[in-house]
Design a binder for these strands. Structure first.
Lengths: 347, 347
DNA sequence: GTGACGATTTAAAACGTTTGCAATTTTCCG
DNA sequence: CGGAAAATTGCAAACGTTTTAAATCGTCAC
């Protein structure tokens, strides 16, 4: 291995050039003679010179980093969301030479305070914000500060313009309804959460809109709601819905984790899926393929979305476009074996 | 929101103090009058002052970052390893005020080159290295450079001393064998991969050692090997092993992903688990709980391990201990329904 | 009132890079 | 060969912080 050269000064000395010239040569400035540029590039390569990030950041104001504040999560994460998301971000960033900073919110510190720290310490040129809440103080802060960001998810408040990418949950839920309706289902169940997340509303509204479009008064919709992380309450709510002869013949869950619980509880209640009950989820987590009989769901291709978010953010950082960048991704149906024709009416 | 003060100079001016004094006051130096320290702290807080990371890094040589080079992964990640790992790292780092840098290797760039870049650009004070290969150039590089790191996994070559944390796969595989042996199994199958990863050897050796300890010549072991990411070859190898009347009655898989494939293929071949075939995995991925009848496996508690790795690394960075830090974590058996007594002999 | 000592505070250098502007060298033309 | 223009290179400041060494202030004993 060649001797390491750590600074521009050393490299310049070894080439008998000024620091300025070497810096410019490496940056590829036209004003430096081509011959010199090549000589410098060659020397830098074989000396293993790597510019110091801190110094570069300090003077240029650009860190080459994109920040992500880790969403605070419960003890058991049952999905690979985070892994796929950071993988996708990484893939999107690397082609532009950027890297990712992951900041964690300590117990007792709000996510916002961590975000503020990341932004104001100059660690990052832009940030990605996930899991948008109905009233999201992070977005308000970022907008006020004029700091580049892209959100994964939308606000309901549409006159707050900003850059976002979202999966079209409303469309997916409409699609799910239409498919089930065409299979003869008329009595539906929706399993949802009580937290004020925007995607909840968007998906529910999509479902409601699809129901409305049919204009069929015989369609019924029961709703079961439970807090996101309270498994006990969730199971209770689901059982209440599944109980009795007048239960839905098809259940749509806000996301797979809920759908999988429905499948478990249905099995426990002696119901056969999909003969007695159709179930459709959203997210396409890995377990949904393994849980019998295989959960029909929608794939949101997190990794691909994350890659696009990275691209969008880099564009925002570089070009500061006047109009916000927005992108709505249509999730694709993954038909497996948890849905089927409505059972014969019991009347 | 109060007006933002961005630099120490501004803060100093507003307090009518020198930059030096303010810097020292914020750092809590004893030599600054207590009254002044309090006054400065108060002003900094309400002005929302956040020190610039780049400037601090440049002069102090410490970035407050820990680096992780994202392992290059196939298109379909079926586990939540990465998510749990970065979550754990984040949790471990945040209590010491450190953050995580995720660097991705671009197509065509080796993981080593990315690592070198992270190290030599001064972005990070230390790095975490995962998925140790039998001959791992990353470890050789880091050692030669004397750069702080902790590896998640061991080398086989024991006279290469360094800091590591590993899950005791050898012990787990011994435990699995003992349990199955006591259930009457004598004919075993091992499903493994062909890549030169150290954990493969450690687990296989643990199994072999446990077999040796029994000293029972009637014990047989078949081995099926396939490349890590070649699903077709894997299925072929597994079917070859499961085929014919003289097949193993118990299969131990190197990790859950393989075990889940064994379960699928067993079902396809008309075998009932665990009546006809016992299966044990390793990792406790989420899907293993959902795949019928429930995979017996070992939980390596990735998140907890990652947290400890973070702690170790911060210790290494701060104290540069002479002797390497090492830590062997014993995975816990998660007994589910994929193992049982050996079937009656077919002879 | 003076000198000295401890308690506080400050000036200035340094970290490694980028960049505006000036200096130097080369090239070209008459 | 002289001079101006063009091409190339270099000087020095700046980014915001930490830190060494030195300056200032107040206090106290004599």
């Amino acid at each position: 291995m060649p001797t390491r050269v750590t600074t521009l000064k050393e490299l310049a000395a070894s080439l008998d050039l000024s620091i300025t010239t070497v810096s410019r040569a490496l940056a590829g400035h036209e004003q430096i003679a081509l011959k010199t540029r090549e000589r410098v590039a060659q020397a830098a390569r074989q000396a293993g010179y790597v510019p110091n990030t801190a110094a570069r950041t300090l003077v240029s104001g650009r860190s080459g980093f994109v920040g992500l504040v880790l969403p605070v999560r419960g003890p058991n994460l049952v999905d690979s969301f985070l892994g796929e998301f950071v993988t996708g971000l990484g893939e999107g960033l690397v082609s532009h030479g950027a890297d990712l900073i992951l900041a964690t919110a300590a117990l007792g510190h709000s996510e916002l305070s961590v975000l503020r720290h990341v932004v104001e310490s100059g660690r990052a040129d832009g940030v990605v914000v996930t899991r948008i809440a109905e009233v999201d103080e992070r977005l308000a802060y970022l907008r006020e500060r004029g700091f580049p960001f892209v959100a994964h998810g939308r606000l309901l408040d549409s006159d707050f313009a900003y850059n976002w990418l979202d999966t079209d949950g409303a469309h997916a839920f409409g699609e799910a309804f239409d498919m089930l309706y065409d299979l003869g289902h008329r009595h539906f169940g929706l399993v949802t959460i009580s937290e004020p997340m925007t995607f909840r509303h968007l998906r529910q509204d999509g479902l409601a809109a699809a129901i409305g479009r049919r204009g069929d008064p015989s369609v019924r919709l029961d709703v079961a709601t439970a807090p996101r992380f309270d498994r006990g309450a969730r199971i209770q709510a689901i059982n209440r819905m599944l109980q009795g002869p007048d239960r839905p013949t098809a259940v749509i869950a806000l996301f797979d984790e809920l759908a999988l619980t429905v499948m478990e509880e249905a099995a426990r209640a002696g119901l056969t899926v999909p003969r007695d009950l159709s179930i459709i989820g959203f997210d396409n987590v890995v377990a949904s393929a393994y849980a019998p009989p295989g959960l029909t769901t929608f794939d949101a291709s997190i990794r691909q979305c994350a890659r696009e978010i990275a691209d969008m953010l880099l564009t925002v950082i570089a070009e500061r476009p006047a109009a916000p960048l927005t992108r709505l991704i249509r999730p694709t149906l993954v038909p497996r074996a948890s849905h089927g024709p409505a059972p014969q009416t019991r009347s």
